[in-house]
């Protein structure tokens, strides 16, 4: 599930493919300043790749080690 709290996007539990759209909307809206994956168990590839593309810092990595590892190594796509 994806929700916006304040200016932080929270990803929780499992985020299936259709939630990529929601995440994209949040990113496009420009209101969010960071992403929190603390309660995130799994993400569909569509959501995952959007996380890689997102020009926002990830505040908390997900507990799942594989996912955390992949996101930790994320190159910053934002402006240099």
């Amino acid at each position: 599930m994806i929700r916006l709290e304040g200016t932080t996007i929270h990803l929780e539990d499992a985020c299936p493919v259709e939630e990529a759209e929601r995440l994209l909307e949040l990113l496009q809206s420009g209101t969010a300043t960071g992403i929190d994956l603390d309660g995130c168990r799994s993400v569909h590839t569509a959501v995952f790749q959007l996380l890689l593309a997102a020009p926002l810092p990830i505040h908390t990595l997900p507990p799942e080690p594989m996912l955390a590892g992949l996101l930790a190594g994320r190159p910053s796509p934002g402006p240099a």
């Binding site: 020009p55 934002g78 402006p79």
Partner: peptide
């Protein structure tokens, strides 16, 4: 938000 990515193309 998106200007950073626009720069890629």
């Amino acid at each position: 938000m998106s200007h950073g990515n626009d720069a890629h193309i």
